[in-house]
Nucleic acid binder design. Structure first.
Lengths: 337, 337
DNA sequence: TCACCCTTGATGAAGCGGCACCAGGTAACT
DNA sequence: AGTTACCTGGTGCCGCTTCATCAAGGGTGA
């Protein structure tokens, strides 16, 4: 049960003014006597008055809030993207509302409803691994609320996107493995529905082809990113008649898990099997052996996405652009390869 | 520039109804003809109608939103607390607005203003390392908006708090070091203003006393949690005439940094120097050597804090409680000690 | 000195989108 | 005809902005 909150009417009454005058004093309108303004500001301060943004937003049809929907929160990737995005957003005077979809489509849909109900001025999204239908996101476009995708994007929506060059990153990672003498390189891939899975897989394939290594389908395993399943797939690979001498993982958490499994089996990384990840998460440089990985500019991605969104919000719906910003990756060679 | 949004008036017009009827149909009021309700719901669906929570909140004086203010976002600790808190909050139908204070007092104050302006129904806070004045938080109490502190709490406010038993955790960590034969145990402590620093320091001291080891003030270094300064302090300790044979760190990121510095100097962990942390962050089990640390129930902390807040929100201001929930820690012995 | 206009500072009312309460109106039953 | 149950309409209001008004005073020219 909240108490009565202080409103401009309270201030107006105490100073014998109309609420319009108080409102103008507070918003810095010029046609207000300096003494009056002073009195209003002082009393407001004294009463802990806070403008009710709900009321203001209702009038201006603008909440100064941008929504961010991410699939999860537990690796370092998304929190860092959010840090970058918040930095840009708050500089521009925007607050952020963050939702996790927990990698499930239903939750993502629910999240978008929350965002709509709360009238966000724009939306930053990275979709779940399950999301195949995009109607819940297209609603925003129809309503004139700009969307920007980052990392995990939707191909059939014509909106700004921020991604890294997944193909190139994967290509270079695998090339590096080949150049260090690996012949049988496995790939623990992500859900085929995700573009990043597809592109990294293509980079992997291209690197093999370029080096005249025949693709062995047996060595490519798509999985749903549930870390607890990694041991199954790794053990399967290691039990093959002709096991791989290297594994390229869709991302760092997976790679880290792979290394744990390999070590548990008594094999040595990289002597017996090399492992390469993708992301350069915080933990990657710390584990033993330190993980070779493809670093992506995470915070930068958040910043870029937020900036694209702000740009879009400042445009008329008719002038909306659909820029795709591709950020560069960098291969970081450490001890796991 | 947003387009016109669909309102109940639009629906009312198209169906030749009054907006009251539409409102009642939408909110599930019983006294609406089934056919009418059906028509309203269908049209609403078709027009992508979304209730405007701003308007509703303005009327009900309730936003169904709880605010969370955390100092940072870059270690795994706070994101995990948030995961727990969001789980409980969303089950109870509440959204969350998250702000980072970036460990600075000014930002924290600004964050509280945002929370007030957005009319949050309750607030979860972990203060910055700088925060010594609490007026900006006391405002919430005066306005009848409940606050719950977690992890980093404010002692002179009578509100619910969730902490771990920092004293006990530190005591057991240091006791463990002593029992494994360490004689000169240093402590890289946190800012003295933070209760957790003080309590962990006290636990450290108590363990020494209990084992008749004299406290050497030279070995206790308070620092401001800026990781980039860790090398300075560690090198200082290692350069002492009588250097320590163990370091107990205020938290895991610090301990991890300490290990890096020690390794860089060519010394061995734990042979030359043992290191113990506090938190059991994700990375702690992965580094080499795996970090001995005091694990705290992070997600649990978020859940408990959120639950205490919900409880408080359901009480009248007069009945507010100020429970302090102390969660248990657990010593996890790994290879760094 | 007076009528007029302009400026300054303040007021009043409408309305943003929705809910809740008070009034009706209609049809069916007593 | 009166009562009841069912539906539906109208209005006020949540806190605030904004536009149209207006009163008071100062300056100007005849």
């Amino acid at each position: 049960m909240k108490r009565h909150q202080v409103t401009i009417v309270d201030i107006a009454k105490q100073l014998n003014l109309s609420k319009s005058t108080v409102s103008r004093a507070l918003t810095g309108h010029p046609s207000v006597h300096a003494a009056t303004r002073q009195a209003v500001l002082e009393l407001a301060e004294q009463l802990d008055y806070q403008r009710n943004m709900l009321a203001i937003s209702l009038i201006t049809n603008k909440t100064n809030t941008i929504g961010i929907i991410v699939p999860e929160f537990s690796s370092s990737f998304f929190p860092n993207v959010i840090i970058g995005a918040q930095e840009i957003a708050s500089k521009a005077g925007y607050n952020t509302v963050i939702c996790q979809s927990n990698e499930t489509y239903e939750t993502e849909v629910a999240n978008t409803k929350v965002m709509l109900a709360n009238q966000v001025d724009g939306l930053l999204v990275s979709i779940t691994k399950e999301t195949k239908n995009f109607d819940h996101l297209k609603v925003f476009q129809r309503k004139g609320i700009p969307i920007v995708f980052f990392n995990r994007v939707c191909d059939d929506m014509d909106v700004p996107k921020v991604i890294v060059d997944d193909f190139d990153g994967a290509y270079r990672a695998v090339t590096h493995l080949i150049e260090s003498g690996r012949k049988r390189i496995a790939h623990l891939s992500g859900p085929p529905a995700l573009k990043i899975s597809e592109k990294r897989l293509n980079g992997y394939k291209a690197a093999l082809r370029k080096n005249n290594i025949e693709l062995d389908e047996e060595l490519v395993i798509p999985y749903d990113l549930s870390l607890e399943k990694v041991p199954i797939y790794v053990n399967h690979l290691l039990n093959l008649d002709n096991p791989p001498d290297a594994i390229f993982a869709i991302n760092d958490p997976t790679a880290i898990e792979i290394i744990q499994v390999i070590k548990k089996r008594g094999l040595k990384v990289p002597k017996d099997i090399a492992v390469v990840g993708f992301s350069n998460d915080y933990a990657s440089g710390l584990i033993d052996p330190a993980l070779t990985t493809v670093s992506q500019p995470v915070k930068e991605m958040g910043k870029t996405a937020a900036q694209l969104l702000l740009d879009q919000m400042n445009r008329d719906v008719a002038d909306w652009k659909s820029i795709i910003r591709v950020l560069k990756t960098e291969l970081i060679v450490r001890n796991s390869s």
